[in-house]
Write a protein that binds this DNA or RNA. Structure first.
Length: 822
DNA sequence: AGGTACATACTTTTT
DNA sequence: GTATGTACCT
């Protein structure tokens, strides 16, 4: 994966940007005959066609959801290559996920074949790692630097906060890392921050100290966190104009997808890369043998690369991560001479789905009005469903999935979205029970499992001996009798003698520890040293590949063997996971024969949630709304459309929060091609107890005629007049009472029980002080008769555990459940 | 050093 | 309801 490029490897006769097509006949795939009509434009509408063909310094493509932007971007790249306006190596395309990058690379290759090799199509983070590893020395790093994920960052901060007693001032690893991340996204560092900090505020002083120590620890460990990857690359370019010039010269066409979600650091990176090269620097490059002649303009410098960005401010959902839509709204100002192209025709969804999406997003003010439209017809109505609980909602989803499946839709064409990862539990429980094949995309990722992180820490310790975090992780994993006391002893020994933790391990004999402990430490140090020798380029015995190295470390440490021998049944699963990792390293060796340990670790560090999405798996996909961005499915279930969840409680106080949540809802809606299901629950279990939920404010923004409520939220208005606002502001035209949920589920195109939701606050369901005890028999509106087995909780949160005669066991919130005693 | 038992606080979204 | 932290025991 990590094919490092040589800035000098591009031929001297390369075509200047935007210049005439060079038909030099030196490329084997041959000349095009005159009058040749490129198939690249086939099937494109006029706007898409222009987006492919336009040439100029800057192009902004405002691409509504489903408007075919990936296709446009792909064909634009193919067009640049096909016309010989650019060599593959001159193209840098930035996507949001590695998966999107791989897909784009595949599509361009499918069009052009071999002529596509050498392009950089990757994420911001991957591109930056590539640059930083190559230029590590200038950045003050070694090329095998570690990449810290958020968990690593938190562990580091936790240690710092503990040593500073900063928790007394309210610092937690969570809030400190959030603040540091935010600053780094703004390209601030400790020094620039402390210059403007209010140092009379003790909390501020403490934060600066935390930030400083954190920066120092990462430096000492030869490590960068996610945000550093971008920031350090920008710093590198700013501090070393000659290094920057190499990349500015190389990348003549830069394309950025999902531009609305770029933050300031990423914006700055794009800026740096698209700056022109001064004539003097160009002279200097030429003098050192870098081919620049064909690139130089009248002034003798190299003009800035052409920049294409694609985005949609309505789909900006990463403000919490520093994304700034001003990057897109002010693009024309930032890059004078920008051409703007609007793609509004949607090729994905039915008109009903689009009308709902338009209506929802129309409630955000401060946006350029943009209406998606489709030529594909209205399609089915959106299906709405109000469940009694999260489990009930999950059951609805499972049932509808089965309905769709038996009507011929493949599982892989369906997806279930939710706002928070915590919602997966109920869904998974029911899907397992209903035997629906599913896959959770993202969530707790494979590489975040403890045993995998342990195994990886062994590899990291070999690749980067300065990584104290990784060393301390494996110090007593598996158990070697090295406790926390010994660990801190080693750390302070290292600190006092200005040596690395690793060296401290080698020298631990002078620490006067017990013979057993000393022996254990020395054995581990020797194991790591021996492993390092196996990948030392100077080793005459040759190089071990990643899987050989991992196997060696696992054997030497006994990690896998001990898990195998354990009686704990969970350890068996852990052992299997480690075996899976070994298998992955073997695959990696096979697919990347020229890549080594550091490349493998890089790849592992930068996998995104959506990356491990396997299209071939015949399963329903479960994911958060954030992960869903950029994907599409025939049928989409958008669950938990409730106040407090969507919009999420946490966003309520943040400026722009509710608007961002609305965009999130909009993103979810627009993922659906044919069928869209919106569901919510009247009560939701969280924190171990059950809370009453209210329909999301966004639901009332969808025109009533577009939704067919299988069960309306009318009965959600069941708490007296306490709620601030009823679901739908209109007070007329909503007759009807409670909807009845048909037994198990209605059949496919089902005669839909037309149930409009009602809005009358007077319609209160409140069982008041209804008391139930074990043994009572009750009747439930939907579940029929049943017997109370147990009552738990108290006050308004009393729960009856009921065994229904036909519907099975359920838990009901007594106060609001549609039940009566019989 | 390491295990167990109980208490506690936390849950937004992610490269 | 879970993951983490503390106290106490072996």
């Amino acid at each position: 994966m990590m094919t490092l490029f040589d800035p000098d490897n591009t031929p001297a006769h390369q075509a200047p940007t935007g210049g005439p097509i060079i038909m030099d006949g030196r490329r084997p795939d041959g000349e095009r005959p005159g009058g040749y009509q490129s198939p690249l434009l086939e099937g494109l509408n006029p706007q898409q066609r222009e987006a492919v063909e336009y040439r100029g310094p800057a192009l902004l493509i405002i691409a509504g959801a489903g408007s075919g932007k990936t296709s446009v971007l792909t064909r634009r790249i193919a067009s640049l290559l096909e016309t010989r306006e650019a060599w593959p190596s001159q193209i840098l395309a930035i996507t949001f996920t590695n998966k999107a990058a791989a897909e784009m690379q595949g599509r361009v290759k499918a069009i052009l074949g071999q002529g596509a090799d050498g392009m950089w199509i990757s994420t911001f983070h991957s591109s930056c790692v590539r640059i930083l590893r190559r230029e590590a020395e200038n950045a003050g790093l070694s090329a095998s630097f570690s990449i810290y994920d958020s968990a690593d960052t938190k562990v580091t901060l936790k240690r710092i906060i503990k040593s500073l007693d900063a928790d007394t001032l309210g610092f937690t690893p969570g809030n400190a890392s959030a603040k540091i991340s935010k600053l780094k996204n703004e390209l601030a560092d400790v020094d620039s921050y402390s210059r403007n900090a209010n140092m009379s505020d003790p909390q501020e002083v403490m934060f600066v100290e935390i930030f400083r120590q954190y920066t120092q620890r990462l430096r000492a460990a030869n490590a960068l966190d996610f945000d550093d990857l971008i920031g350090e690359t920008v710093y590198l370019f700013r501090a070393f104009p000659k290094v920057a010039a190499l990349y500015r010269r190389r990348f003549r066409h830069i394309l950025v997808d999902e531009y609305q979600d770029t933050n300031h650091a990423q914006y700055s990176l794009v800026r740096e890369l698209t700056r022109p090269v001064d004539p003097e620097l160009a002279d200097e490059m030429e003098a050192t043998g870098v081919h620049v002649r064909n690139l130089r303009d009248a002034t003798g410098g190299i003009p800035g690369a052409s920049l294409t960005v694609v985005g949609d401010s309505d789909q900006s959902i990463y403000a919490f991560r520093g994304a700034d839509t001003r990057n897109i709204t002010e693009f024309e100002r930032d890059f004078p001479g920008t051409k703007v192209i609007l793609l509004e025709q949607n090729y994905r969804s039915t008109q009903n789905i689009l009308s709902a999406a338009n209506a929802v997003i129309g409630h955000n003010f401060d946006r350029k009005d943009k209406k998606l439209w489709s030529a594909g017809g209205d399609g089915e109505k959106i299906v709405g469903f109000t469940a009694y609980s999260g489990h009930d909602e999950a059951q609805f989803v499972a049932d509808e999935i089965e309905v769709l499946h038996s009507a011929g839709m493949a599982y892989r064409d369906m997806a279930v979205f939710y706002r928070t990862n915590a919602q997966t539990r109920a869904l998974e429980e029911i899907l397992v029970r209903s035997a629906v094949p599913y896959r959770v995309v993202g969530g707790t990722k494979f590489y975040e499992r403890a045993e995998i992180k342990d195994a990886l820490a062994y590899l990291i310790s070999v690749a980067n001996p300065n990584d104290e975090l990784a060393l301390r992780r494996i110090l007593n994993t598996p158990k070697r009798g090295i406790g926390p006391a010994t660990e801190t002893g080693l750390a302070s020994f290292a600190e006092a003698n200005q040596i690395s933790f690793r060296q401290a391990m080698r020298d631990c004999a002078s620490l006067g520890l017990g013979p057993k402990v000393t022996g254990a430490i020395l054995k581990l140090a020797a194991l790591l040293d021996e492993a390092a020798l196996k990948i030392d380029p100077a080793n005459p015995a040759g190089q071990a590949n990643v899987s050989e190295l991992l196997t060696f470390l696992l054997d030497g440490s006994g990690l896998l063997t001990l898990l195998r021998g354990s009686r704990d049944p969970q350890d068996e699963a852990r052992a299997e996971n480690i075996e899976e990792l070994v298998a992955q390293t073997k695959d990696f060796n096979k697919e990347n024969p020229d890549s080594g340990l550091v490349d493998f670790l890089t790849q592992v560090s930068l996998v995104a949630a959506a990356d491990d999405l396997d299209d071939a798996s015949g399963t329903v996909s479960l994911m958060t709304l954030h992960t869903a961005k950029g994907l599409e499915y025939e049928a989409v279930f958008l669950t938990g459309v409730e106040e407090g969840l969507l919009p999420h409680q946490m966003s309520a106080n943040e400026p722009g929060g509710p608007a961002e949540e609305r965009r999130l809802f909009y993103v979810g809606i627009t993922r659906a091609r044919q069928r869209l299901y919106l569901s919510l629950a009247m009560t939701r279990a969280q924190f171990g107890d059950i809370n009453v939920a209210m329909p999301s404010r966004y639901l009332q923004e969808i025109p009533v005629a577009l939704i067919d409520w299988k069960q309306s939220p009318g009965m959600a208005n069941s708490r007296g007049g306490t709620q601030p606002r009823a679901l739908n502001a209109r007070r007329d035209g909503f007759g009807g009472g409670f909807a009845k949920r048909g037994e198990p589920q209605a059949l496919p195109p089902a005669p839909k029980p037309k149930t409009e939701w009602t809005n009358r606050v007077s319609q209160v369901r409140d069982n008041g002080d209804l008391t139930l005890a074990a043994g009572d028999r009750i009747r439930h509106v939907d579940f029929g008769d049943g017997r109370v087995n147990q009552v738990t909780g108290d006050g308004t949160k009393r729960i009856a555990h009921v065994q229904f005669d036909t519907a099975g066991a359920k838990k009901l919130l007594i106060k609001i459940a549609p039940i009566e005693k019989i």
